[in-house]
Design a protein around this nucleic acid. Structure first.
Lengths: 342, 342
DNA sequence: CGACATCGTCGAACCGGTTCGATGAACAGG
DNA sequence: CCTGTTCATCGAACCGGTTCGACGATGTCG
């Protein structure tokens, strides 16, 4: 493999001149520049990433820490990851994907060893053990997900509280007065998945103010448990006319449950989900839903991260906490309850 | 950040001695070793990855090239990726995930710059433009998926031909004589997705020999197109009693289609899919299926790759092409056709 | 008691880039 | 003609590890 020394020899100049000719960081005569570029081309020269990283303290690699828990729904993750890798590449960075169970140790490893210029953290928990490590790390970081303490970090997330209110408002306006909200499994909450109760508590609060009865329950993340749970819920609350689903697995399982019970959507039951449009398309979900915009969130996190990485102004800027406001995408799965129908 | 020079000074020894004490590559007195380890601990020393890569020509990073095409089903990809990253980490490697559209250029970039010690390629096409680059690269590579020309490469894939035969045999034994096979969209085949016609052609051949009528058609990868297609198929072949689905999106969409038509599985229609058990669980699919074992394939590819990376014997070993034999996981979605029922 | 292994440690070189200060040539101005 | 710039290029140092050969202090043996 050709080194810059080989290129310099081929072009008949010194190594430093070759370097400057290639980087353009100092004026070089047209003649020499041409010779160097020709030599680099002829030898198929590509700089050695390790050597460059050592010299410049820049790796042009970003870390992406994603955690896959047994009770989470892996397919929904893909869109976040693609948002990050695609945007990173557009900005000239490669992505180191770390899925290690011990996220804190993994984060320490890749930051301390200087493998990455910055890190994006996903699956943020309320009290995430990775955050103290990230704050102490020499590289900047960005979060997709809102932790309890955002200090010293850039944070991007869907506005789950507003999402909860939008869902309740929408059904209330149509005339619904008894609604069920299916959240993620209790495990997700115990692990610190704050977004679950952020949406739920906001929804409960809004329902209370509007005089709507809202039954908020934990869901399951797998079949057949999630199907059984949905059936049990519909049995337990026969008067409920609306169903809010903040749980991808439950949303994916719902069509077969309603078919099985002979329920028509929206005539017998109005449904609103919360997931990405990609997810909706993949799983053929026929429900109106709050767009969770995973690709946009991943992309935003990377852009902000790269700004901090690349400029000292960026590094000094105040930290941002940015919420995407929930957009309700209509698929016609809501209607006034049967009791109000003419 | 502490360097090995800092550790050496703190321990009162030379840099080389500190290095040997940490690596154990030369005998070091117990006393000195203790001092060095204590110093490293005290200073929270972590070797700089770039410097180490430069010195040893080893990065301890593997590249993972995955392509996401518009008309493919992204959620099914996740399991392959996890199989690779988890196994890589077990063996001491991190994973650089590259999803660039121009896979050939991306491959050249990460191999030429020596960012990775080896590469795993996914979504292999019959005549994959990345293969010549991989063969010329200084690092070894492993494929998940079977290309037209396997020379000089380690290849891992499901035995799709056998899968096609198993599916047909199974339905034939139950008494089915007219079957529909839904494959991936035509685009996937045009792009070189050889696994599609490997399964299809083997199934057609076996059906011919058994005197079974097999209608092989291209599918779609999205809703609502895939749902419409399934309905159209069931209209077009009313006498068909069996359905083979080599298409994740079609399998995911099938439950609502059968419910919608009032078809019972397996009484009115026997169904066999081809996907992973993870996928089946995520999407609540109630069908018997050929296990595509993405995590096992990813894991096998990484293990073989690491063997080649880490030993000169491994590097010299003959190249392997290894097929996972298709396992039919029963979910009770097949039965004798209604015409034979007592 | 001197020659010779053995053991533990050190210094220097190297991996392949980048970057700073110095140097020499060409040229303008006094 | 001499001085002072400007411009292009070079040499050397540096980033932070690893590794080879050498060297001094022991201990062993004749």
């Amino acid at each position: 493999m050709a080194t810059i020394g080989d290129v310099a020899r081929e072009a008949g100049v010194s190594r430093s001149t070759a370097s400057y000719a290639l980087s353009g960081k100092r004026p070089i005569s047209e003649e020499v520049r041409r010779r160097v570029l020709a030599a680099a081309e002829a030898l198929a020269y590509t700089p050695n990433a390790g050597a460059r990283a050592l010299a410049t303290s820049q790796t042009k690699v970003l870390g992406l820490l994603a955690q896959f828990h047994e009770d989470e729904f892996a397919p929904a993750m893909m869109q976040y990851i693609l948002g990050v890798t695609d945007t990173a590449r557009d900005l000239g960075y490669d992505t180191l994907l770390v899925t290690e169970a011990d996220g804190a140790r993994a984060l320490r490893r890749i930051t301390d060893s200087r493998m990455v210029d910055g890190v994006v953290l996903m699956n943020i928990a309320e009290a995430d053990p990775r955050l103290p490590i990230l704050r102490a790390a020499p590289q900047p970081g960005a979060l997709v997900g809102l932790p309890g303490d955002c200090s010293g970090l850039d944070v991007f997330d869907l506005d789950f509280e507003e999402a909860g209110r939008v869902m309740v408002d929408h059904l209330h306006q149509l005339g619904h007065r008894e609604i069920v909200l299916v959240s993620q499994p209790e495990h997700v909450v115990e692990r610190g998945g704050a977004y679950v109760w952020r949406l739920r508590d906001a929804a409960l609060e809004r329902a209370r103010r509007l005089g709507v009865t809202l039954h908020a329950v934990y869901g399951e993340s797998r079949q057949p448990a999630v199907g059984r749970l949905l059936n049990a819920l519909l049995d337990a609350y026969p008067a409920a006319t609306g169903l809010l689903v903040n749980n991808e697995a439950a949303a994916a399982a719902l069509p077969s449950v309603t078919y099985g019970r002979g329920l028509r959507v929206p005539e017998d039951l109005s449904v609103i989900g919360r997931y990405s449009s990609e997810f909706a398309a993949s799983f053929s979900l026929p429900y109106s839903f709050i767009e969770s915009a995973p690709d946009r969130l991943g992309s935003m996190a990377v852009r902000q991260l790269v700004r901090r990485v690349e400029s000292q102004e960026g590094r000094a800027e105040p930290f941002v906490v940015r919420f995407i406001s929930p957009e309700l995408v209509s698929r016609g799965s809501t209607a006034p309850p049967a009791s109000l129908a003419r």
